[in-house]
């Protein structure tokens, strides 16, 4: 406690109090939060962390349910798709459980409540072709979060290759990076996403502050382990594909996307010691 007392000045305490009001989930993670603050060598580092956390979206169950209802409403009312010819599919490619399947399962109840009780759901990307051949030509991919959109762009390419006939394609996400969604929209596909996020640093700060904040985050990441098993920090620097996300579904028993700044979830310090991180990212073998 005394170490922390010396580490926090009056302005910072005021910001921490404001942060607790805005982000009450931090109250349940005080040890992790304090450890993160103690990692900050200067007041500028701490200010950056506090500023980023103030903008963080930590989805609680109530918010998630609201978003699921909005997505169900879009699918039924605004997508133009009909129940008999639509398949709602996860983008899951392999046999590992993922959040796309989680959201696919969650959306069933709001859809049922809003009138679609006979909708076809598909829990693997590969199974969409079989369902297309059975008349489900309106394909709606659903996922929890989209970062840069590169995975989705890859899936679109593959789908076009696998399906020879005509099909309609739309996307729904709980949350996503605005630039990633625009990458998908640029291909000509409609995207519905109730929570569109700007990049945490590069779309919130402008020159010359932008360069300062970027340097501060780079030096903070310098305190993290360069690699853990087969995972290399440079691949996740500022979030995977530099997504700079400030978002997690942990408040609703979800995972933290790798698009989030690794300072919040990368599990080891430079000298290999485990960190008591603010957020948890499940990725096979990353510990």
């Amino acid at each position: 406690m005394s170490k922390l007392k010396k580490h926090i000045n009056r302005e910072e305490l005021s910001k921490i109090f404001a942060l607790y009001s805005r982000q009450p989930w931090l109250l349940d993670k005080e040890d992790n939060f304090i450890e993160l603050l103690l990692m900050c060598e200067t007041a500028e580092h701490k200010r950056l962390i506090l500023e980023l956390l103030a903008e963080f979206h930590f989805l609680e169950l109530k918010t998630l349910n609201n978003f699921l209802n909005l997505i169900a409403d879009f699918i039924i009312t605004d997508s133009g798709f009909s129940e008999s010819t639509t398949q709602i599919a996860a983008i899951t490619y392999d046999d590992e459980a993922d959040s796309s399947q989680k959201i696919l399962d969650y959306i069933k109840i709001p859809l049922h409540k809003q009138g679609w009780a006979d909708i076809k759901t598909v829990n693997r990307f590969g199974a969409t072709i079989k369902n297309y051949n059975e008349g489900k030509t309106q394909i709606l991919f659903i996922d929890e979060f989209v970062g840069s959109g590169s995975t989705i762009v890859g899936r679109v390419k593959q789908l076009k290759n696998d399906i020879k006939g005509d099909f309609e394609l739309k996307f729904c996400f709980i949350a996503g990076m605005d630039y990633g969604i625009k990458n998908i929209e640029a291909l000509g596909y409609e995207v519905y996403c109730p929570l569109r996020l700007p990049k945490g640093i590069s779309e919130r700060f402008v020159h010359p502050e932008l360069e300062v904040k970027t340097e501060l985050m780079t030096s903070l990441e310098g305190k993290l382990a360069d690699s853990i098993n087969s995972y290399n920090l440079p691949d996740y620097s500022f979030g995977y594909n530099k997504a700079e996300a400030l978002y997690s579904l942990e408040g609703s028993n979800g995972n933290t996307p790798n698009s989030v700044f690794p300072i919040f979830w990368w599990p080891r310090t430079k000298d290999g010691k485990p960190r008591n991180t603010l957020l948890t990212r499940f990725e096979k073998g990353l510990k």
Binding site: M1, L4, I8, L13, I16, F17, Y20, L27, E30, I34
Partner: peptide, 8 residues
């Protein structure tokens, strides 16, 4: 001798 959370 309390933490920011406890004081808050």
């Amino acid at each position: 001798n309390i933490s920011p959370k406890e004081l808050y």
